[in-house]
Simulated scan of single mutants.
Amino acid sequence: MAVPLYQAKAEFFRTLGHPVRIRVLELLQNGPTPVRELLSALDIEASNLSQQLAILRRSNLVTATRDGATVVYALSTPDVAELLMAARRILSTVISGQGQLLAELRAGAEEVQA
């Protein structure tokens, strides 16, 4: 029996639901990157990075190629970068909306105190 689309989407977003995985995907937007460079850009243990990369690989969000002893990771599709940019736009809108709400709350508090 096939998994319903909404369930597949939920699993996809659960895969994205870890800060290290998001940061790896952001770093890979700049192009294919060796593991050692990912490790130097992140403040985590090599074993943790390996675990997070394995999850991203199993989800087909990244690809891995070997160049001698070096493993190089890349985004599997430009759509991943587009998704991250869309998330940034959405967060910008949400945060700016919260800023407006905060300004209104502060203005209301000043009126009450006056």
Rank of each mutant, 00 (worst) to 15 (best):
R106F: 09
R66T: 14
I95K: 14
A109K: 10
L16E: 02
L42A: 12
P19W: 08
F12S: 08
E11W: 03
V94E: 15
R36I: 00
R89G: 00
V20G: 01
G68N: 09
L16K: 03
N30Y: 10
G17E: 05
I90Y: 11
L42S: 13
R58A: 07
L53W: 09
I55W: 04
A109C: 04
I90V: 14
T63F: 12
L91N: 10
N48V: 05
V62Q: 03
Q98S: 08
S40P: 00
V80L: 05
Y73R: 06
A114D: 08
Q29Y: 03
S76T: 08
G68P: 02
R58Q: 12
G108E: 04
L91H: 08
T15N: 04
A64D: 04
G68Q: 10
A74V: 07
A54I: 02
Q7C: 05
G68H: 06
E26S: 01
N30H: 13
I55P: 00
V94Q: 13
A107I: 05
S59E: 13
N48A: 12
T33K: 09
L42W: 12
E26F: 00
R88P: 00
G17W: 03
A86M: 14
L101G: 04
A2H: 13
G31V: 10
Q7F: 08
A69M: 04
S96W: 11
F13L: 11
S40M: 06
G17N: 05
V3L: 12
A103S: 15
S50N: 10
V71A: 06
G68K: 12
Q52S: 07
D67E: 06
L56G: 11
I22K: 06
G108Y: 01
N48W: 04
V94G: 11
